[in-house]
């Protein structure tokens, strides 16, 4: 059970890292996530059933998410609409696109398809057991993604992204085109979300266009829960607490689902629970003296 919670937390933690990048670093509240999560799932599923190399399929999913996120940024940049609306547009359009990607259906089972996770499971069966193998696999995957992201935030481009989220005029004054930075940033964010969706599909054994419903809100809840664990201005700790927040969120949802019936909670109430969690976080943040907004790390 606990392994299951952690594995789910890690899978969705990748999505939460994407949400952290757009909402916290770029200060670009982006709702495309609800569409790019199932997009990643759909692309992965169709590539795998088509017999594509698994690593390549993951890369294709990431790229699809990146492009979709980039389109959100372009809509925002070129039409001057708020990021929220741009994200809703992309999300809505993606619903139709995802059905097309899945070959005109809303759901594609992966039961008899060889996936990255079936190979891990088979490998585990013979040695340390399925659950342990999955756990170790996802710890490694998420750690690699986290470290790459940390590294990225130390590059000139990564630093510029952090600066833009704080002060767009400053980066314009430094000769940087903010539109370009947004395209790359929101693209990267949704690329991560798509990877998360790709793993979720393999974990659950199917891809579904409705997989993404309300996912951005849960991602936000994960980010905010993480912010309560500890405060820091070091990027390595900031990304770590996003992942911990995701695991914590999955744990809360698990208990909501399995023990909620004592207080008459049904699985249908989980969205309500998510919303209340966010509202609670907002209230607590308001009364906290320290700002929990993203802070750039010192670089030494």
């Amino acid at each position: 059970m606990i392994e299951g919670i952690i594995v789910e937390g890690l899978i969705y933690g990748i999505m939460a890292l994407g949400v952290f990048l757009s909402f916290r670093v770029l200060d670009f509240p982006d709702l495309s996530v609800d569409g790019t999560f199932p997009l990643g799932a759909a692309v992965m599923a169709i590539c795998l059933t088509g017999g594509m190399n698994m690593g390549l399929a993951l890369l294709v999913s990431f790229t699809a998410g990146f492009i979709a996120g980039g389109i959100t940024a372009v809509i925002h940049n070129k039409l001057g609409v708020p990021s929220l609306l741009a994200g809703i547009l992309t999300m809505t359009m993606l619903w139709s696109i995802n059905i097309r990607v899945l070959g005109s259906r809303a759901n594609l089972p992966l039961l008899r398809t060889e996936t990255i996770l079936t190979s891990i499971r088979t490998l585990g069966e013979a040695t340390i057991g399925e659950t342990a193998a999955l756990l170790i696999f996802f710890v490694i995957v998420v750690l690699i993604i986290k470290l790459l992201l940390d590294l990225f935030f130390h590059t000139d481009l990564g630093l510029t992204m952090g600066a833009m989220g704080d002060n767009e005029q400053m980066i314009i004054s430094q000769g940087v085109n903010p539109e370009m930075v947004k395209i790359i940033g929101v693209g990267l964010s949704n690329g991560l979300v798509a990877i998360s969706g790709a793993f979720a599909a393999q974990y659950q054994g199917f891809a579904d266009v409705n997989l993404g419903q309300g996912i951005v809100v849960s991602g936000l809840a994960m980010v905010m829960l993480g912010e309560f664990l500890f405060s820091s201005n070091r990027i390595g700790l900031l990304t770590l607490r996003v992942i911990l927040g995701a695991i914590l969120y999955k744990a809360i949802m698990f208990f909501g689902r399995y023990y909620g019936y004592y207080i008459n909670l049904t699985p249908n109430d989980l969205k309500l629970l998510t919303g209340l969690l966010i509202i609670l976080s907002l209230i607590l943040t308001k009364y906290r003296s320290k700002s929990l907004k993203f802070r750039r790390p010192a670089n030494d």
């Binding site: 000139d156 630093l159 510029t160 952090g162 600066a163 989220g165 704080d166 002060n167 400053m170 980066i171 430094q174 201005n233 907004k293 993203f294 802070r295 750039r296 790390p297 010192a298 670089n299 030494d300």
Partner: peptide, 12 residues
């Protein structure tokens, strides 16, 4: 950028 260190600001 207030959320970044002095050296990171200078770098940008």
């Amino acid at each position: 950028a207030g959320n970044m260190s002095i050296s990171d600001n200078m770098l940008v």
